[in-house]
Design a protein around this nucleic acid. Structure first.
Lengths: 264, 264
DNA sequence: AATTAAATTTCGCCT
DNA sequence: AGGCGAAGTTTAATT
């Protein structure tokens, strides 16, 4: 018994059977998969029509609706989740599936002249999707290979505790100045600048030295860039993908001797 | 015999059978559909991982690769067509499907712990997708709402017969000059300019008045633009989508009184 | 709720 | 082949 979850599959069903199965799938909030020859009409934000052909139709429990042709990455017609109602009807010459939603008001009608396969599925999937590299990966990459940031940078510590929080990477540059690095996995926003500013002020209160502030991220907003310049801070482009690669290539290496195993 | 095209369906197959069926599907360039419990790793433009769960996997003949979860409009992982190679392997504890492409270099590995459904499909689909509004819709929109074109335009007739053919929209502008409008649903080419030129010459032969010529389309070629300028004609950007929207919002309204029910 | 910005954007068209 | 711009973009984050 490999599958605790139930699944209903019909091959080349009669329209009457298909209608029942599809209705069941909808009322049970199952994922519906239909393959068959159909024509499609869409009306809503735009409108479109597609004469008959074999397609794959997927109706999900949240209202997401997808129709795929034999080629191409993107669905030829679709409907995003949100206020979507599905409905099926056995017509004179075929079977119609409709997806209707309000706000924005739109509807798709799929008219099947022929159905080859129906599957009603309970897809058990509670896994969380994780997009790498994480911010932590980026931090590790910088610690292992500081030249990713700038030639001559030497990390002193990471996750250094200061008044407002924790500094991602704390370092010195070639000229011996202190460097505070704030890492963002995505495009840096104003919040990143604010954070960095607070860290630097905290450092300056303790050490009466010149302190540089660097935001390391794959991008930065246009106006954030201005804010950064005004605040006398710097931006360094850092690609999460490149960080991941760096980690992969150096993961067996230990941290440099001047860094202990634990953050200071 | 409802289906001239062949289709292979396996329900809860053994991995060895699954491997054969999938290999066949790949070598025969069929559309492959797999439902089962799998984990996914992606590495390429970014990288991601997803722990096990039930998903729908679609591999198309052009290399398009899609993995859908139970919810959401968009695939959790995917690969666009282009230099993609599929491959399948029966492992110790399951079955792996790989999609690999170069330029950009990326790969997806789908590791099935369990397969519930396999379908290998020949999707016969030669239909052409048509996104409305049609040229006719654009014409209607202009007639209903001439300000789409220009403030003060007053349509006189549509599909007006002249020597070389039919004028899409015939009108007067604010200054009382005659206006000939040529509508194109897509980017206008030299043919549109030629057509328009001929219509204008035909009108000028009859009416000894100043005549303007306007091409209304969602775009125009760079060199066509030059040709247009040389010919003393004009281009007006007109969005088919906006036209469709205009029609939707005004479809119950009748044509203005100065226009009859039939073209002149 | 509306606005803005990013996306493994994809896709088509043009150079 | 590379670059630009639009999309029924979608989606997440922010105001």
């Amino acid at each position: 018994m490999p599958n605790p979850r139930s699944m209903t599959v019909l091959i080349d069903p009669a329209f009457s059977d298909a209608e029942k199965a599809i209705n069941n799938a909808f009322s049970q909030r199952r994922t519906l998969l239909v393959v068959g020859n159909c024509s499609i009409d869409y009306s809503g934000r735009a409108s479109s029509s597609l004469t008959p052909g074999d397609r794959i139709v997927i109706a999900k429990a949240d209202g997401s609706f997808l129709i795929h042709r034999s080629l191409g990455n993107e669905p030829v017609n679709w409907m995003p989740k949100g206020n979507v109602v599905f409905n099926v009807q056995h017509m004179e010459h075929g079977l119609e599936i409709r997806a209707i939603r309000r706000k924005p008001s739109e509807s798709i009608r799929v008219s099947f002249a022929n159905i080859r396969l129906i599957a009603a599925l309970d897809l058990a999937d509670s896994a969380e999707f994780s997009l790498n590299a994480s911010e932590q990966d980026m931090q590790k990459a910088i610690l292992l290979k500081p030249e990713l940031l700038e030639e001559g940078i030497k990390p002193i510590s990471w996750e250094k505790k200061v008044e407002p929080g924790f500094i991602d990477v704390y370092a010195t540059d070639k000229q011996g100045r202190l460097v505070v690095v704030e890492i963002k996995r995505k495009t840096a926003g104003k919040d990143a600048v604010l954070q960095l500013t607070r860290y630097i002020e905290a450092i300056k209160r303790k050490a009466d030295r010149e302190v540089r502030g660097i935001i390391a991220s794959p991008g930065i907003g246009k106006d954030v860039q201005r804010l950064l310049a005004i605040s006398g801070l710097e931006f360094k482009y850092l690609d999460p993908k490149k960080c991941a690669e760096t980690l992969r290539h150096t993961k067996m290496r230990r941290l440099p001797e001047y860094l202990g195993e634990n953050p200071s």
